[in-house]
């Protein structure tokens, strides 16, 4: 399987601050890819550039065969996104929200209704069907966000801090969803998180960002080896070494 995402010198500057600094790496098809880094490292900026929400200052990226600068629409056609702090239309319930997105994604009406129902059950909101999203808790909204990112049945799924606000049961379910999509459907999954435990369990490969620069890239054993981590040393320790903290 070849690369489905390829960053080529991808850079974003805000004045003097280089939020993403000449990043070059690839994400392979069907892989579960973790994008890690301290607060403000540039993870969200990278993701928003890949989806065409903010333009790169320099460099570009190829997503699913399309250049994000030249053909942003094609680049995001098969990409599902759970944005950081996603919000919904409070006056609508889960199904109505999802149906709107399904319509935007051009999902045929007949397929859409069924798919939305299944997604609602999948993220554990089955018993909240009549409830308007305005009355949702934070974690419930996050679950709905995950369902939203799957409405288009994307080839690439990008989740920006999907574990935010989600309870342990939801975390377990999400882990199973991510594994299932990757193994059974060959979906490529990129996610950012600060929960290293989950990274350790889930990710095929990881990129560690530090102030916009890629400080480490590879499988977890590779990353451990590069910093000469001792046998049984916690992944948190390894991560902090890449961050230059220890």
């Amino acid at each position: 399987m070849g690369p489905i995402i390829e960053l080529k010198n991808l850079t974003k500057k805000y004045g003097n601050l280089v939020a993403v600094d000449h990043n070059n790496y690839q994400v392979m098809e069907g892989e579960i890819f973790g994008l890690l880094g301290h607060n403000g490292a540039g993870k969200t900026t990278t993701i928003l550039m890949l989806l065409g929400l903010i333009p790169p200052t320099e460099g570009t990226a190829i997503v699913d065969g399309a250049d994000i600068k030249e053909n942003p629409l094609q680049a995001r056609r098969n990409v599902g996104l759970l944005p950081e702090n996603a919000g919904f239309y409070d006056n609508l319930n889960a199904k109505q929200n999802l149906s709107f997105y399904a319509e935007l994604a051009d999902v045929p009406e007949k397929v859409a209704s069924d798919r939305c129902e299944k997604l609602i059950d999948m993220v554990g909101l089955g018993d909240k069907r009549p409830v308007k999203v305005g009355a949702y808790s934070r974690g419930m909204k996050q679950r709905l966000g995950i369902a939203q990112s799957l409405v288009r049945e994307p080839k690439v799924l990008i989740l920006d801090e999907p574990l935010q606000g989600i309870d342990p049961e939801g975390t377990r379910d999400l882990r199973e969803i991510i594994r299932g999509l990757s193994k059974e459907k060959g979906v490529t999954i990129i996610f950012t998180t600060h929960v290293l435990y989950e990274v350790n369990r889930l990710c095929d490969r990881v990129a560690i960002m530090k102030n916009g620069v890629i400080a480490g890239l590879g499988t977890i054993p590779e990353l451990r080896k590069q910093v000469n981590a001792a046998e049984g040393e916690d992944f948190e320790q390894v991560f902090l070494r890449y961050q230059g903290v220890v």
């Binding site: 928003l48 989806l51 094609q74 056609r77 702090n85 996603a86 919000g87 966000g145």
Partner: peptide
């Protein structure tokens, strides 16, 4: 923007 739904909207394959 405030609601946080614009990012979602813009991630869809529409201009």
């Amino acid at each position: 923007k405030q609601r946080g739904s614009l990012k979602t909207l813009l991630s869809y394959p529409i201009y």
